[in-house]
């Protein structure tokens, strides 16, 4: 399993190429765990990333107000609900209407070694990120070798 890591001097161009390459690989070949997601085509799309400390569940939900978003944890299920309104000034007409609007709800089943009670969420630039840390006992630890 490759780790997506930036070189010490951050280069956004190379970073984008390597992120896209990593995403493509997982698109074609999802890794073993079943997140219980019903699959592509349901709004909003979800990406899940992992790092040493835990998992990141990311969704692209631009243009929401914070009070239009609800995140619930129940057992090992994370549910995200929201409503997206698209408003326009009065007295005109639409030429194009491509942006999704309405209510949505998505649930993700998480592995048991994560601690949903300590999950944290942030919303910026239209991206919702929920970070779920690993349980302390599930974190990797170094094993020391005793001299004989």
């Amino acid at each position: 399993m490759a780790l997506f890591r930036f070189p010490s001097s951050f280069d956004p161009t190379n970073a984008l190429v390597s992120l896209q390459r990593e995403l493509d690989r997982v698109f074609e070949n999802p890794l073993g765990f079943d997140f219980g997601l019903s699959g592509k085509g349901v709004y909003p799309p979800v990406n899940v990333f992992s790092n040493k400390g835990g998992y990141f569940v990311k969704m692209e939900v631009p243009g929401l107000a914070l009070d239009q978003l609800t995140i619930e944890a129940h057992g090992r299920t994370l549910t995200i609900r929201g409503k997206r309104d698209v408003s326009a000034p009065q007295g005109g007409s639409f030429h194009r209407r491509e942006r999704s609007r309405g209510e949505f709800s998505r649930s993700v089943q998480l592995p048991t070694d994560l601690d949903l009670a300590r999950a944290e969420a942030s919303y910026k630039q239209g991206m919702l990120t929920v970070h779920i840390p690993k349980r302390e006992e599930a974190k990797p630890r170094q094993i020391t070798i005793k001299a004989a």
Binding site: F4, Q20, L23, F27, L37, N47, V48, F49, T129
Partner: peptide, 22 residues
């Protein structure tokens, strides 16, 4: 528009439904 990528640092995708790009 160019997307911000810093927050993807040191992580690896495990499940994907959408692409990321400019």
């Amino acid at each position: 528009g160019r997307v911000a990528l810093q927050e993807y640092s040191d992580s690896t995708p495990v499940y994907t439904e959408y692409h990321v790009g400019n």
